[in-house]
């Protein structure tokens, strides 16, 4: 890497960088504060990593993992951690994050973020794995609240308490995905605003927004699907404002992962998020 790289991730709006935009980002140079990537897409070498290094020369970058499987009872894959650490050494990301979910069982990767039962056992597992992750990387990480479509009858801990407990016990921070809260609140019938009020101020170091799909269940009800394939909804923009008012100005990410539109659409959503971040900053200063 170059000797001097852009500094830490600012309290500004960033976008998720996906392969279809590698070329466009370097050609169009969108006016966004930072870029996020999924490290698993850069675990090898070659053209993909070269493109990421080119982006890194001009923007702060975050590594947002989707496959480490912090919720796996069998512990973390040492090869995965080693690859993540090697990529972090090469890219020097401003932030590293992962999900409160699981995707590995019996040594097989299950290609989705799967739901955890919110139990004391699962809390112990997640905390142990977060500690392993932070120790392997030699730094504090952020963990993201999940979106989910089902729950487990033996769960004993409300999700917001689970998130706060992981942060309190491991010293990690929370990545508050307000779209995930909108999805899960609808699917499980809890209050999204109450969720935000239950997260301790000071532990939230980043916020995500994205679009979700709505699918009819056939009985007059609907299920929200966290597919990152449409524009951020008015409700989610509202939750972002509530979150920024509570947690203060922090980095905000706009994420698209399916039906990925032209780069300009992401940049426009990031510009809208940027205005809300700045308004929250002014409100605090006033």
């Amino acid at each position: 890497m170059a000797a001097v790289l852009p500094g830490p991730v600012p309290a500004a709006a960033g976008i998720g960088l996906r392969f279809p935009h590698h070329r466009a980002v370097l050609d169009e140079r969108p006016a966004v504060g930072w870029m996020e990537v999924h490290p698993e897409n850069y675990f090898g070498g070659g053209a993909a990593v070269a493109a990421l290094e080119a982006v890194r020369r001009d923007w702060p970058v975050t590594l947002h993992g989707v496959g480490l499987s912090l919720g796996s009872a069998e512990g973390l894959d040492a090869r995965h951690l080693a690859r993540l650490a090697a990529l972090a050494a090469r890219i020097e990301p401003g932030l590293i994050s992962e999900h409160v979910a699981w995707s590995v069982a019996g040594g097989n990767y299950l290609t989705d973020l799967l739901p955890l039962p919110m139990t004391e056992e699962a809390l112990d597992v997640v905390c142990r794995n977060v500690e392993t992750m932070q120790s392997a990387l030699g730094r504090q990480v952020l963990v993201e609240n999940p979106s989910s479509y089902l729950q487990f009858a033996h769960a004993t801990i409300p999700e917001w308490e689970f998130m706060a407990a992981v942060a309190a016990r491991t010293g990690c921070r929370v990545l508050c995905d307000v779209n995930n809260i909108a999805v899960s609140a609808h699917n499980h019938g809890f209050d999204a605003d109450a969720y935000l009020r239950a997260l301790p101020v000071g532990v939230v170091g980043e916020i995500h927004v994205a679009g979700h799909a709505v699918r009819p269940l056939g009985d007059g009800r609907t299920l929200r699907l966290d597919d990152h394939g449409s524009a951020v909804s008015a409700e989610v923009w509202g939750l972002l404002m509530t979150a920024l008012a509570r947690f203060g100005p922090v980095p905000v990410l706009v994420e698209w992962d399916t039906r990925i539109p032209p780069l300009g659409v992401l940049a426009a959503e990031a510009a809208r998020a940027q205005v809300l971040i700045e308004e929250a900053g002014h409100a605090r200063a006033a």
Binding site: L110, T111, D112, L114, P115, P117, Y149, L150, Q151, F152, A153, H154, L223, L225
Partner: peptide, 20 residues
């Protein structure tokens, strides 16, 4: 026995995992 509200919700994960 543990999955709520119903087992059909597991299909959402199955479809996503297979599609990915």
């Amino acid at each position: 026995a543990l999955i709520t509200p119903d087992l059909a919700r597991l299909d959402v994960y199955r479809n996503t995992a297979r599609t990915v």
